[in-house]
C-alpha cells in the first residue's frame, strides 16, 4: 500500500509557504535587473543561491510537519513517521531546487560567469548542501522543541552566526560544519570533506527527526 498522493500533498501544502520562496526569488531577480553590473550580478547570484535559498528552506522546514491542521488525524492512520518526514521535507527541497535553478538559469541568460565556483556540479552543490542541511536542521529543531518556532530560531541562529564568523569558521575544526564554504571558499582544500560532513550532518538531523516523530504524543 502506498498511502501517498502527490495531488493531495500539493493541495494540502500551504500557499503562504509557496509565496515566501517566490517572493525571495522575485526580489533577487528585480535587484539584479536594477543593478545591471556584471560583478554585482555574480555576487547577487551567490547571495541568492548560497544564502537565501538555504535560509528560506530551513525556515519552511521548521513549519513543514507540525504546522498541519490535521496532524492528529494523520497520526491515527497507519502511515510511518519516515513517510511524513520525507513527504514534507522533499516538497520543500523541490521548491528550493526549482527556485535556485530558476535563478541560476536567469543569471546565465544575463551573462553571469559561475566558473569561479567550479564546474556545474560544484555550482549545484553550493545551494544544495547548505539547503538540505538547514532543511534537516529546521525539521530537527521543530521536532525536538515540539514547536515550529524552535526550528526556525535554530535555523536563523546558525545561519546568522556562520555568516558573521565566516572567516573564523573556515580555518578551525568548525570548518566541517561551515555551511557557506562551497559558495564563499570554493578553493578551500577541505571543501570535499566539508561537503561530506554537511551531508552526514543532514542525515544525522533527519535520523533524529525521524526518531522524534515516532513519539507522536509530543506533538498533539
Amino acid at each position: 500500500m502506498k498511502r501517498f498522493s502527490l495531488k493531495y500533498t500539493l493541495l494540502t501544502y500551504r500557499l503562504d509557504q509557496l509565496w515566501f520562496p517566490l517572493a525571495f526569488l522575485a526580489f533577487f531577480i528585480i535587484l539584479t535587473l536594477l543593478l545591471r553590473n556584471e560583478v554585482q550580478n555574480y555576487d547577487i547570484a551567490r547571495a541568492y543561491v548560497g544564502f537565501a535559498v538555504p535560509l528560506v528552506g530551513g525556515f519552511m522546514a521548521a513549519y513543514a510537519i507540525l504546522d498541519d491542521p490535521a496532524l492528529e488525524l494523520r497520526f491515527a492512520t497507519p502511515i510511518r513517521a519516515a513517510q511524513i518526514l520525507l513527504e514534507r521535507t522533499t516538497l520543500i527541497f523541490l521548491i528550493q531546487a526549482v527556485c535556485a535553478n530558476a535563478f541560476l538559469l536567469f543569471s546565465l541568460i544575463i551573462g553571469v560567469d559561475f566558473s569561479p565556483l567550479g564546474n556545474w556540479v560544484n555550482v549545484q552543490l553550493c545551494w544544495l548542501l547548505p539547503t538540505i542541511t538547514l532543511i534537516a536542521l529546521g525539521t530537527f529543531g521543530a521536532l525536538i522543541g515540539a514547536q515550529t518556532m524552535v526550528g526556525s530560531f535554530l535555523v536563523g541562529l546558525v545561519w546568522f552566526v556562520e555568516l558573521i564568523v565566516r572567516d573564523g569558521m573556515a580555518v578551525n575544526n568548525w570548518k566541517y560544519a561551515y555551511i557557506f564554504m562551497s559558495i564563499l571558499s570554493p578553493e578551500h582544500p577541505d571543501l570535499v570533506s566539508n561537503q561530506i560532513a554537511l551531508f552526514a550532518l543532514t542525515i544525522a538531523f533527519l535520523f533524529v527527526a525521524w526518531a522524534l516523530l515516532r513519539k507522536q504524543e509530543r506533538y498533539i
Binding site: 498522493s5 491542521p69 490535521a70 492528529e72 488525524l73
Partner: peptide
Amino acid sequence: GYLPQELGMYTELTAEQFVDYMAILKGLD
C-alpha cells in the same frame, strides 16, 4: 476510525477530497 475532540482539517479541500485523502492515507489504493 478516529474522530478526535479537536478536529483539524484541510479546509481548502472539498468534503469529497478530504475524505478521499484520508482514505489514501489509510491504504485504500
